[in-house]
């Protein structure tokens, strides 16, 4: 299967899939596929990509720091927002909202995504029509714009059959649906990068298929799967569009809860401040960008630390 067969992939999916594959390859030591030349070219392209990303990131950080400097203090993290006094306003409920929503997303997508990927890669008979239908659907869902998931969340999760209301749990569920196809595809890629010689070696020792999957394939693929999850979730943290539709617009001046009451998330709160005419709110928004980056850094660092723990479990 080549990537060209599935042209409709959003950037979040392409990134997560490539990351998952590369990580597993580095673990199972798949070195023969790329020659010396391929390696050089790959490294050059990587450096170019990393360079571009770093330049863009530094530009944002420098701009946000220069603009938001007058308001940088720990008050930003601990204070509640305000529409009248930007100098005393903070992001506390939005940070909590983001953490709740993302924790909910992770709790939903890891078991579901990995389970689906294991089924499709290790158990499903790819010649059966229903498995092909599932695969096609996942491929297509990964290409659907995020706003569509927002509408779906509004119609089915906030209202409609599930009727959770405009709560953080609805935001989690909506974002989970959004990133689930990406996580499934990335996990499949990580699992597929585990060479079949490892499965055969395990089965030849009298291990059952489940023992082979759970003790050989999944541990080898886990860092790759986690890479895919990190990359998918990092994108989800920045998603404002679908969350706007499922209630994250409430201007909350209290700590949100998971299953009731309004909630907000960082990108939406920043967006709201940035839209105000007063200069001080623009400064507050710039400072909020730094807060968002900080939260991202903390979440990613935790995930990467987790990944390293598993990698070292030889």
């Amino acid at each position: 299967m080549t990537d060209a067969a599935y042209p409709v992939r959003t950037e979040r999916t392409r990134l997560a899939v490539a990351g998952a594959r590369a990580t597993t390859r580095s673990i199972v030591g798949d070195s023969e596929r790329s020659g010396r030349f391929g390696n050089l070219l790959f490294v050059a392209m990587l450096l170019l990509g990393v360079g571009t990303a770093l330049v863009a990131l530094s530009a944002i950080i420098v701009w946000a720091y220069v603009t938001g400097r007058p308001l940088l203090s720990t008050d930003l993290l601990t204070n509640y927002p305000s529409t009248v006094n930007p100098r005393a306003a903070g992001y506390r409920p939005a940070i909590l909202g983001t953490v709740y929503v993302i924790s909910g997303v992770v709790a939903l997508i890891v078991p579901l995504g990995v389970g689906a990927a294991v089924y499709l890669e290790e158990y499903a008979d790819g010649t059966k029509w229903w498995n092909r239908l599932i695969e096609l659907n996942i491929q297509n869902l990964a290409g659907v714009p995020s706003i569509v998931f927002g509408i779906l969340g509004l119609a089915f999760i906030v209202r409609g059959p599930i009727s959770l209301g405009f709560v953080a749990a609805a935001g989690s569920l909506t974002l989970a649906l959004l990133v689930l196809p990406t996580v499934i595809l990335a996990s499949r890629e990580a699992i597929r990068a585990v060479p079949s010689s490892i499965r055969h070696g395990s089965l030849a020792l009298g291990a059952t298929q489940w023992q082979t999957v759970s003790r050989q394939v999944l541990p080898a693929a886990l860092p790759g799967i986690l890479t895919g999850v990190i990359l998918a979730v990092a994108r989800a943290i920045g998603e404002a569009a679908p969350l706007l539709l499922v209630g994250a617009v409430t201007f909350v001046t209290f700590d949100p809860r998971f299953f009731d009451g309004g909630y907000s998330v960082l990108p939406v709160q920043i967006f709201q401040y940035a839209g105000r005419p007063q200069e001080d709110f623009r400064i507050l928004a710039a400072a909020g960008v730094l807060v968002l980056l900080l939260v991202l850094l903390v979440i990613n660092a935790t995930a990467i630390w987790l990944r390293h723990r598993y990698e070292r479990e030889w």
Binding site: I27, V28, G29, P195, S197, I198, H200, G201, S202, A204, L205, G206, A207, T208, Q211, R215, Q216, P219, A220, W314
Partner: peptide
């Protein structure tokens, strides 16, 4: 048991490679 054409150790420690079979069985 079976030994394959291309060496196919598991991506684990030497100890865990040997212990894998006895543990699973």
């Amino acid at each position: 048991g079976m030994v394959f054409q291309k060496p196919n150790p598991f991506p684990k420690s030497i100890y865990d490679n040997v212990a894998f079979g006895p543990r699973t069985t």
